[in-house]
Structures are given as structure tokens and as C-alpha cells.
Design a binder for these strands. Structure first.
Lengths: 122, 122
DNA sequence: AATACGCATGAATAGTTGTTCATATATTAA
DNA sequence: TTAATATATGAACAACTATTCATGCGTATT
């Protein structure tokens, strides 16, 4: 019964309908985009970036990080928690100390590439 | 006058003093780390990631994005503003429409690498 | 000139986030 | 056991952010 000769029935909409459909199909799954935005969100903080840049040099215990960042220990621990829960850093316990390091080198690549962008775009 | 035989005078501190000094020296300048965290912060939002993933497929005008994201136009414009001010997207005007696209391919590399991380780390 | 349309923007608001303070936990030393 | 040290964590608060609503601005159409 319904005639579907032309893809757009209404000519006057601004939307590029078929392009929009194509783009929609090429989008990653919402869940993956959510994870991606959460990853970037975890990287998107000055304190956490400093922690990660420090860990790029070396595995460090919490009090080392406190000293490098010149911040109070509680603040550092809270940010380490964020990084842990996003699986950006890993840690090992040794006596009273906890040593943190980058979880894998995907992360260091991301950070380095981001830094390159920042350095080159000036 | 001052004798500096041992690097750490106090043995009992938890801090690895010389390592901390080395790490401090290797840190990028604070301003650059600030820019880097701001870049990641701009990428760290679900709506903005969806915008960017869409623009990865094609240049799009605002109303296309509104349709792809199924959000109201004002919200999309506000987020585009964030992306513009971080130089993540660029735009061109054509009549009543404004077409947005990714600013350069550093950005698309960053996004793709982030997405790969998300996909592989499961 | 008047209207319609696409987009931008300011204000308001609810939700989120980072830091601090106080305190808890766990490990080691005395 | 007691004390000291390294780290983690909950609560509180200020600062920030994303969305909505209302409206403004510029361009095209009539």
C-alpha cells in the first residue's frame, strides 16, 4: 500500500538522511563509546596526568608520588584509586609500601601521542 | 664545608630520594601537562565521544549530529563549543548550515587508539 | 519587510568531581 | 602488646560540568 519511491518524503528538512543513516551504522556500540569516554575522563585531570607522566619514568611507591607531586598523601591516594579502577595503573605491595606502575604500554602510547599532539599543535 | 658522602642523609625515610629527583627532572613542563589533561578532559565525555566518532565517518552539519545523537540541538551546540575551543574540531559555514569535522588526524589517531585499548582490554 | 530556519549562547539547575580532614587498616619495629 | 609508618577511605564542601529552556543572531525565502 505504501509507496516508497523517494528515500526522503519531505524535501525541506536540513538533515542529510542517508548520510546520517550511514554514520549511525558506523558508530561503535554505545557501551564501547562509554568505556572510551570513561578512559579519557580518567586521563583528563592534571593531577592524574602528572602521576602517569611520573610513572612513565619509573615504578614508584605512594610516598614517592607524594614527593614528586608535592601534594598531600590523601589526595594522591584518591587519584590513584581512580586510575586503578580504570585499569590504567597496576600496583604491587611490598611490606608497608605499595608500588604503582602503568598497566600496559597501550596507556603509555596514548599519553605520549597526546603529548605529541600538544607539543606539535603550537 | 658540607660533606656529601651519602646521597640520603636520613636513612629511614620511605622516599627514594634520588629516584624522585630523576623522575622530577623527566617530567614535562607543568603547562604542557596541563594542556594534555585538558585535551583528555575534552575527550572524556560520552556525548563528545559520540560526536567525534560520528565525525570520524564524515563531515556533518549540526542538525545531522542532532539526528545521529538523538539529542536536542542546544546540548549538541554546547558540546561542539567545547570541542572547538579545544581545537579538536573545525567548522565551515555554508548558508544557514555549519559543517563540523575533525581538526587533524592526530585526533582521529588518538580516538582510534583509545578505542583499540577499550576493545582489546576485555 | 516579514517569516522561517539553523545554529549559538546565557541562565538555571542537578549532578559530578577534586581536595581536605579525620580516621581506619595493615605492616613492621620496639 | 604498643608504637610508628605507609596507605586507603569516608564524609564534607567547594568548584566544575552537562543538560534544558528561552532567546538571540544571521541567512534564506516569500
Amino acid at each position: 500500500m505504501t509507496t516508497q519511491l523517494e528515500p526522503d518524503i519531505c524535501e525541506d528538512v536540513c538533515i542529510h538522511e542517508q548520510l546520517v543513516e550511514k554514520v549511525k551504522k558506523e558508530l561503535p556500540r554505545a557501551e564501547q563509546m562509554m568505556e572510551l569516554s570513561n578512559l579519557f575522563k580518567a586521563l583528563g585531570d592534571f593531577t592524574r596526568i602528572r602521576i602517569l607522566e611520573a610513572l612513565l619514568s619509573s615504578e614508584l611507591c605512594v610516598c614517592d608520588l607524594v614527593s614528586v607531586l608535592d601534594m598531600n598523601q590523601s589526595a594522591v591516594s584518591h587519584q590513584l584509586r581512580v586510575l586503578r579502577s580504570s585499569k590504567i595503573v597496576k600496583f604491587r605491595k611490598e611490606g608497608k609500601n605499595v608500588y604503582y606502575s602503568l598497566d600496559d604500554n597501550h596507556i603509555s602510547q596514548l599519553i605520549n601521542q597526546g603529548l605529541n599532539h600538544v607539543l606539535e599543535s603550537r
